[in-house]
């Protein structure tokens, strides 16, 4: 399985997460499933509603965001593919907190933001037995 994302959408996500530094930011990845590929056609930024003093290492989507994004994707014949969030000054590797709050068959795109600069993006998916994440290939394409 490969995640395909346009250069523009990836850049928008990185810029948004640079803007939320030193706190975590996040949002949804919406798009299409084609064969074994997940094609991200749009992103949606969602405010971090975790307690303010904990946002440097925690992210929680505000209430209602999931329903709205899923309903809209379903109505438009798209799929809610997954979500992205940042790890400020930490690697783009899932934490134990990430694993406990994850589901399989959902894409987890993590962006490492070091001192305000997005330096690495890695995609992950939870194993069916919930015991670990495995890496997913991330392919960036330029769309004219």
């Amino acid at each position: 399985m490969t995640v395909i994302i346009s250069t523009d959408i990836h850049a928008q996500i990185r810029r948004y997460l640079e803007g939320t530094f030193p706190n975590e930011g996040g949002g949804f990845l919406i798009g299409k499933l084609e064969n074994e590929h997940r094609i991200v056609t749009e992103s949606r930024f969602v405010k971090n509603s975790f307690e303010t003093e904990e946002q440097y290492h925690r992210y929680l989507m505000e209430s209602g965001a999931y329903q709205d994004a899923e309903d809209e994707a379903d109505a438009r014949g798209l799929s809610l593919l997954g979500y992205f969030h940042s790890h400020p000054n930490h690697p783009a590797v899932p934490s134990e907190f990430d694993r406990v709050h994850a589901w399989p068959h959902f894409l987890y795109l993590i962006v490492s933001v070091r001192e305000g600069e997005a330096v690495e993006s890695l995609a992950w998916e939870l194993a069916d037995n919930r015991d670990r994440f495995y890496p997913v290939a991330l392919e960036e394409i330029k769309v004219n």
Binding site: E24, H57, R58, M61, Y66, S95, D98, H101
Partner: peptide, 10 residues
């Protein structure tokens, strides 16, 4: 009814 996850990370 509807099952809805709280989307959280850290």
């Amino acid at each position: 009814l509807r099952i809805i996850p709280s989307i959280a990370g850290g």
